[in-house]
């Protein structure tokens, strides 16, 4: 098996008290995890467990108190610009068309617009968005906006994609549709993905491996490998293997 690509090594993070007299907020208590190149790994945990803090630390927006983040063997702790991420909020720029939103990453790194469009066009086709290339985000549905946001994340050509509950705000139907879609797209491109969620089914359905976090202050409670072969279909959610994994994960989660 390939070497670990992203390594999160023994991260601690405590926030000072928000107000005087309040207790300080221990958020991450020695979290370690690793993602191999081309692997889809999820982090699952109760809400408020510090998943998003971990996310901010990996993306370089915050520094840990202790511990380090390594990417391809290089220490990137507190460094920005190595990963691209996607949130529940699509964060599309409302004044940019779909196409111009997608090319944000290349554009920031000095790629000419013409060249960036050339890169984006085939992906727009692939994502079934070419008809909307010149639409504004406000004209699209929630699911479509998330597809554009994902395209932007992919096109940023970073070494790692961080997805923080990207489908959390969608209705159940659109959500499962987006999961199928993401699963298909991922099988094709094999990007290295770290996916944060609190949805057990979503985590199993999409991932190669899942880390289960405890309540705050977070530690890794369990690491579960999902060996259901790809491509996975919706129907497999009720299969024995799936249900077994789901039980295992829930007991790890609830035992927290």
């Amino acid at each position: 098996m390939a070497e670990d690509y992203l390594v999160v090594d023994d991260i601690f993070k405590t926030y000072p008290p928000a107000e005087k007299g309040k207790e300080k907020l221990e958020t991450l208590n020695g979290v370690s995890l690793a993602v191999k190149k081309g692997e889809f790994v999820s982090v699952i945990g109760p809400s408020g467990c510090g998943k998003s803090t971990l996310f901010n630390i990996i993306s370089g927006l915050e520094r840990p108190d202790k511990g380090s983040v390594l990417l391809d063997g290089k220490d990137i702790t507190g460094e920005k610009g190595h990963i691209s991420y996607m949130l529940q909020k699509d964060l599309l720029l409302p004044w940019r068309t779909v196409l111009d939103n997608c090319i944000l990453g290349p554009e920031l790194h000095g790629v000419s617009k013409k060249e960036a469009y050339r890169l984006a066009m085939p992906l727009l086709q692939e994502f079934n968005l070419s008809d909307f290339a010149s639409s504004y985000p406000a004209q699209l549905s929630g699911g479509m906006r998330q597809r554009v946001a994902f395209l932007r994340t992919v096109l940023a050509k970073k070494e790692l994609l961080l997805l923080d509950e990207p489908f959390g705000a969608l209705d159940a139907y659109t959500k499962s549709e987006m999961q199928d879609w993401l699963s298909g797209i991922w099988s094709k491109y094999r990007e290295t993905v770290l996916f944060i969620t609190h949805d057990v089914e979503e985590a199993i359905f999409l991932s190669d491996r899942v880390y289960v976090f405890s309540k705050r202050p977070a530690v890794v409670k369990a690491e579960i490998t999902v060996s259901i072969p790809r491509p996975r279909s919706r129907g497999e959610i009720t299969s024995n293997d799936f249900v077994k994994l789901k039980k295992e994960m829930l007991s790890a989660l609830l035992g927290a």
């Binding site: 610009g81 190595h82 964060l91």
Partner: peptide
């Protein structure tokens, strides 16, 4: 301005 957008661009290396 939406601070989340600023953070996104910053994380992307802007």
């Amino acid at each position: 301005v939406d601070e989340d957008m600023v953070r996104l661009l910053t994380a992307m290396g802007a």
